[in-house]
Structures are given as C-alpha cells and as structure tokens.
C-alpha cells in the first residue's frame, strides 16, 4: 500500500488524545504526520521550561496554553489535519462530551490516578471505544522492556508496565518518545483495520 493511500484512509478518522504532555504531544505529532483526519485533545496546562526535556514544544512557546501551542505545532507539521483543542481539565463528566465520536482514544496523562479515571470513564460511559494506554516509561535505557500488549478487545497497553516516574526516575524524551510513538503506531494499526462508519458523520 502506498503512503498516499494510507494517508487518505487515515484522513477519515477522528482520534482523541487525553492530555498534551510528553505522551500526548509526541503522539499527536506522529499522527499528524501520518495524516489522521481529526485530532481532538484537551489539556489545561501551560508550557513550562521543565516540559521541554520531553514534550513537543519549543522555548518560544513557554507560557502558552498547551492547547494553543500543540494546535500550532500540528498545523506546522500538517495543515490538512483538523485539530479540536480544548483547554479543560478532563473529568468524568466532560470526557464523554469532548471525545464523542472518536474512533480511538489515546490515554496520555502523567499521573496514575488520572489514567485510572479516564479508563474507568471510558469503560463505563463509552464501552467499545478502543483506548491506547501509556503505562511505564520512566528513566532511560532498557528499551526492550517497552512493549505493546492487547489486554482485551478494547484495551491496548504500551510501556514497560513497571516503572513509575518520580524525582529520582524522571520521564525523559527517549523513553517517553518510544511509548508515545508506540501509541501512535497502535492507533494507526487499529484505524488501518477499520472501515468508516459513515452513519456517524
């Protein structure tokens, strides 16, 4: 299959990304380059200098809302992508609204309790929607510990599933990038198997 055909297929779909930090911003960049039609994301944070060790932002964007900065960066990569950027803190109430109609949702939070909240919300209010989780990416090295696993029909996991980020084991660009791109790769794989449900347009 030629890239132009792959891109045209991916252009039909809508992908949700929960969080625009290390996982979300890098995953969005890979999906934008691949030609995913619509990217919906939400993040209420602003870009800080400490984010630049792994997140897809630039020094000139420090102080900007991540929702604005990422929208700008995606447009610079691929202006054909429709980007719906929210600057809301995601919770049990707004997740089903913001991500309604998404073909796949990428879990891209930093904190474990937010990851859990998102999963619980999707499984209870949006059952059947595939979700791609990032779990375990702290530190450096040990590339082979990072893997993809399909937990069941709708839950896909990327990461080492064992490291927890903290002050002495920070998340860094190489390993966060591995997981973020593995998540994007999983999204592409899911979408390439899918035919568009036109009635939902």
């Amino acid at each position: 299959m030629r890239f132009s055909e792959i891109r045209d297929h991916l252009a039909q779909f809508r992908v949700g990304i929960a969080g625009a930090g290390g996982l979300g911003s890098n995953c969005a960049a890979a999906l934008a380059r691949s030609g995913v039609g619509t990217i919906v994301f939400s993040d209420f944070d602003t870009v800080e200098p400490a984010n630049l060790n792994r997140q897809y932002y630039f020094t000139s964007q420090v102080g900007m809302l991540k929702s604005h900065a990422l929208k700008e960066n995606i447009a610079r990569i691929n202006p054909d992508i429709t980007v719906i950027a929210h600057a809301e803190k995601l919770d049990r109430k707004n997740i089903p609204e913001i991500f309604a109609g998404c073909d796949v949702i990428v879990e891209a939070f930093d904190r474990d309790e937010m990851k859990e909240m998102l999963l619980e919300t999707i499984l209870t209010t949006m059952p059947g929607t595939p979700v791609v989780i990032g779990s375990g990416l702290a530190g450096w090295g040990n590339s082979n510990a990072i893997r993809y696993r399909k937990a069941d029909e709708t839950i896909h996991i990327c990461g080492d599933e064992s490291t927890t980020a903290d002050d002495d084991l920070p998340p860094m660009a190489p390993r966060v990038g591995l997981v973020a791109n593995m998540q994007a790769n999983t999204v592409v794989e899911i979408l390439m198997k899918k035919t568009r449900d036109y009635y939902r347009l």
């Binding site: 979300g24 779990s135 990416l137 702290a138 490291t163 966060v176």
Partner: peptide, 8 residues
C-alpha cells in the same frame, strides 16, 4: 487486570 504507572 492492568496497572497504571505514573509518567507521561
């Protein structure tokens, strides 16, 4: 069962 590890 799956664990959710902090970091992102």
């Amino acid at each position: 069962m799956l664990y959710l590890m902090s970091g992102g």
